[in-house]
């Protein structure tokens, strides 16, 4: 680890320590922030008692379903759009504006359409994630090195083999970042939806703890949510790095 990395860890530790001291001395009131040590203890309690298991299962179910819809739907939509340049040009303004629109404003409408439950959450989360996957697929297919395509032509691969043996493997690193984004967006969509209006789930548990002044529990749940995302992101990132190293791209 370089010098910058060490300083970074020192800065983060110092910030956590400063927060701990500020909380313990009462400079920050416990009604606003609980000390980091109490947050960690709360995470431990929540996880060992298993009380959050039900909410967590619901949230993860919605996230997994939405991520799969976003990845599969986004991948095939990307393939189709890539194959039809005219369609792609037409859709360009939509692709550019898609993430500028705050999709959460549509969550109330989704509740009206699908009722409270997993339905609106999954739709919201898939809608958020799918465009990231479409864009990643387009990007990946755009950046297949020309020499590989020429080799495929020399070997007289048909379109199917060319796609399966050359284009998709070459586009895979881009697809992987699409998968990473699709997951992040799906998670944000589900938790945000649960948080705003729902009857169960991790986001609901956080907002319930907030409403009932259970600060310790609330901070523990927030740490669990952030930890979960970080865990999945880090796993995907490590996989991505390993892949790129194997291909000599780093």
């Amino acid at each position: 680890m370089g010098k910058a990395g060490l300083i970074r860890i020192a800065v983060i530790l110092a910030a956590v320590l400063a927060l701990e001291i500020a909380c313990r001395t009462g400079a920050v009131p416990p009604s606003a922030v609980v000390p980091p040590s109490a947050m960690l203890a709360s995470v431990y309690e929540i996880l060992t008692t298993g009380e959050i298991a039900h909410d967590l299962r619901l949230t993860l179910t919605a996230v997994v379903i939405a991520t799969i819809i976003a990845i599969v739907g986004g991948f095939f939509a990307g393939l189709i759009i890539h194959g039809l340049p005219r369609l792609r040009r037409t859709l360009a303004p939509l692709l550019a504006a898609y993430y500028a629109i705050p999709h959460l404003a549509f969550y109330p409408l989704l509740i009206v359409v699908f009722g409270l439950g997993l339905g609106p959450l999954i739709v919201l989360a898939s809608l958020l994630g799918i465009m990231a996957m479409i864009i990643a697929t387009l990007d990946g297919l755009d950046h297949v090195p020309r020499v590989l395509l020429r080799t495929a032509a020399v070997l007289r691969l048909n379109r199917w083999s060319e796609m399966m043996l050359v284009r998709l493997p070459a586009a895979f690193p881009h697809l992987l970042s699409g998968i990473k984004l699709a997951f992040s967006y799906a998670f944000i969509g589900v938790v945000a939806g649960e948080f705003i209006l729902s009857t169960a789930g991790l986001g609901h548990a956080i907002s319930f703890a907030y409403d009932n002044f259970q600060n310790r529990r609330m901070y523990g749940l927030i740490l669990i949510a952030i930890g979960l995302v970080t865990l999945v992101n880090t796993t995907l990132l490590v996989g991505e790095r390993r892949l790129l190293t194997r291909r000599g791209m780093r």
């Binding site: 970074r8 998670f187 901070y219 927030i222 952030i226 970080t230």
Partner: peptide, 22 residues
Amino acid sequence: GEVFEPIFVALYSIPKVTLYPV
């Protein structure tokens, strides 16, 4: 910049919605 950039990138990717109660 080298010290703080990864911190900002990490902040970018966490679901900030969970921080709203804070």
